[in-house]
Amino acid sequence: MTNGIEGKVILITGGSTGIGAETARLLAGHGAKVAVAARRKEKLDEVVAAITAQGGEAQAYTLDVTVKAQMEAVVAAVVANFGRIDVLINNAGVMPIRAMAEVNTEEWDAMIDVNLRGTLYGIAATLPRFIAQGSGHIINVSSVAGIKVFAPGGTVYSGTKFAVSAISEGLRQEVGEKIRVTSVEPGAVESDLKFSTSGAATETVLDFYKQAIPASSVARAIAFAVEQPADVDINAIVLRPTKQEF
């Protein structure tokens, strides 16, 4: 059913590594025009080079999702370069795991800024364009931690991901007649996300991620949502390693 992907212009935040990079490669392989955006330009260039070497079409954009003006500028640049935008994949995220009693408000702020505010800025930059063209697809990468609180240590992270899942469902109810909305909620996935943690919880997090599935598994789930006919909206996808309990 990959004809539902071919020709679509797709912007992926957090597109330099992990889920974002794997999704970019997969979708480009099915004929999408891919825009990857993240803070690390050198990593983005590697993703673009790999895609173009396989005959795909991709461009890189430096982006800090916590800066509203940068998000707006990247979306405008994607439209200028490709002529339109069809899909936004809000994938950028951070996951420092730490007990709340340690009161690390800098990490709390970072999770709110990247996971939540960054998602909202992506929606804000693309939604008016989608409404104007009468079509579009917003895919928000949440987490199983947005279904079940991951504690101790992941309380604030879970809070941001619960919010992303709630925003996805509320947005679907508001604009779902013409604009598709999908919340993708993975469990442990092999990516840089696990390295967000430092301090006492590091060993526990790394041990938990020994069961992780590859990022390509999530990429396939995202592609499944994208490739559906226009009258089919995959609202939520939950996927975990088979060994993961929660």
Score class of each variant (00 low, 15 high):
Q173S: 00
G134Y: 03
W108H: 05
Q228W: 06
A151E: 05
A35V: 09
G83C: 08
F224V: 13
M111Y: 01
N140Q: 13
I10T: 07
K8S: 08
T13I: 04
A215V: 08
A200Y: 07
G15S: 13
S217T: 09
V103S: 04
L239V: 10
S143L: 03
V78W: 03
S135W: 00
D45C: 09
V75H: 11
T52S: 07
A80V: 08
G18Y: 09
S183N: 06
T204P: 05
I51E: 01
V67S: 07
G93I: 06
I213V: 15
D45Y: 15
A21R: 15
T242S: 12
V149G: 01
L120K: 06
V189G: 04
V103M: 11
V103N: 03
A151D: 02
D109V: 05
T126Y: 10
A60W: 12
V205G: 07
E177S: 11
G159A: 04
V184F: 02
T197R: 10
L239I: 15
E102N: 00
V238Q: 10
A166K: 04
A223K: 03
M1K: 09
F162S: 02
F130H: 01
V79C: 08
G187T: 07
K161V: 06
I51S: 00
K68F: 11
V164R: 03
V156F: 02
H30C: 13
L88R: 01
K243W: 04
A188M: 05
R220I: 13
Q244A: 12
L193H: 11
K148S: 09
E22A: 15
S217G: 10
S165M: 05
G153E: 00
I131F: 00
R180W: 04
G15T: 11
G122K: 07
A219G: 12
D231H: 09
V65D: 02
H30D: 15
R98N: 01
D64C: 01
D109K: 04
N104A: 06
G153R: 01
A24T: 05
Q173D: 07
A200F: 03
Q244M: 02
E6A: 15
A236L: 13
A58T: 05
V47A: 06
A110T: 02
T17A: 14
A49G: 03
G4S: 12
F224M: 09
L44N: 05
I19T: 13
A69M: 09
R220G: 14
V156P: 00
F224A: 13
K194L: 11
R40D: 15
N140L: 09
A200C: 11
A50T: 10
R117L: 07
V34A: 11
Y61M: 12
A110E: 11
V47E: 12
V184M: 00
N115P: 03
A225F: 07
G55R: 14
V114S: 04
A230N: 13
E106T: 10
T2D: 14
D192H: 13
D86R: 08
T119E: 02
A230W: 07
G176Q: 00
N3K: 14
S183K: 03
P96V: 03
V232K: 05
V141T: 15
I222F: 10
I5Q: 07
A145F: 00
V181K: 02
L193F: 14
A53P: 00
V74F: 06
E6C: 14
F208L: 12
A32L: 14
I89C: 10
T17S: 15
P229E: 09
T126E: 08
P241A: 15
D109H: 01
I89T: 05
